[in-house]
């Protein structure tokens, strides 16, 4: 009976898994085909000889080296900013008492409920005014601070026990020491979760990089790839090679750290 039930679960999960993974498999297989091979009817599954030249050709059209570099800098900038500043702000909201604290936290909550498109035009105008259009720093702008990160880490700091802090105060530790030496290490899993969450969504961001940076050398993987479409609407082996080049880094990082990813994403959700 028990065995029987497991068999059905596996069948359903395998079916779902195929739906999830076949598009990617088809992408890789197409990336290795010649153009005539890809439009053959009926289609062949495997390329006769895997055409690595497609990757070379697509890298000639799009500067993927620059895309990797720009995307990395954007992700690092947003992760560093949001983790650092959210940690201090969240600690202040959870553990310190000062006038205006609740007003500030109210601002954080309001920001979280508003769709991000409402900020984009004035953010763009601000970046333009600062003369930063078409630069790497422009890519980081919307993610330098994070209302969501402040909210998430505040929960972590609220959940930490009081006695460690009290003992440190008796020993004469100041607020900085308590924050940096005691609380921050205890909130490590929260910091990791926020870093993963921020990195993932920075990597996937399309509208902002598309708007602020228009020259090829300043684009990210997401916005750069969007340009390929116009150039090769029908050359699918090349389009798929471009897609492979754009998505392999994040998929590799995810597979290497999949446990951290899943745990991190699980902690960012939850209850309202």
């Amino acid at each position: 009976m028990r065995k029987n039930k497991n068999w059905i679960i596996h069948l359903l999960l395998v079916l779902g898994g195929l739906i999830m993974v076949v598009p990617f498999v088809w992408m890789v297989l197409t990336a290795g085909k010649t153009l005539p091979e890809s439009t053959q009817i009926p289609p062949t599954i495997f390329p006769k000889k895997f055409q690595f030249i497609n990757f070379k050709d697509v890298a000639k059209v799009l500067p993927f080296g620059k895309f990797y570099f720009n995307t990395l800098l954007m992700v690092l900038g947003r992760v560093a900013g949001s983790v650092m500043f959210s940690a201090t702000a969240a600690f202040a909201c959870a553990r310190l008492k000062f006038p205006g604290r609740d007003l500030f936290f109210g601002m954080v909550l309001v920001q979280m409920m508003i769709p991000s498109q409402i900020f984009i035009t004035p953010q763009y105008l601000l970046v333009q005014k600062m003369g930063l259009l078409d630069t790497i720093p422009a890519l980081m702008v919307p993610g330098i601070v994070s209302a969501f990160g402040t909210f998430l880490l505040r929960q972590f700091f609220l959940g930490l026990p009081n006695d460690l802090e009290e003992a440190a105060v008796l020993d004469g530790a100041n607020v900085w020491t308590i924050f940096y030496k005691i609380m921050l290490p205890l909130a490590r899993s929260g910091l990791v979760a926020l870093a993963i969450f921020t990195a993932l969504f920075a990597f996937k961001d399309l509208m902002w990089p598309l708007i602020v940076n228009s020259s090829m050398g300043k684009m990210t993987l997401s916005s750069g790839l969007a340009n390929l479409q116009g150039q090769y609407t029908t050359n699918y082996p090349q389009l798929m090679s471009g897609s492979v080049l754009a998505i392999w880094p994040m998929i590799l990082i995810f597979i290497l750290f999949q446990k951290k990813f899943i745990e991190g994403i699980a902690t960012t959700g939850g209850k309202l």
Binding site: P23, L206, S222, M250, I251, F254, Q258, I262
Partner: peptide, 11 residues
């Protein structure tokens, strides 16, 4: 099941 989540939407 999580792989589509980590793929860039343009790809």
């Amino acid at each position: 099941y999580f792989i589509p989540v980590v793929a860039a939407p343009s790809a």
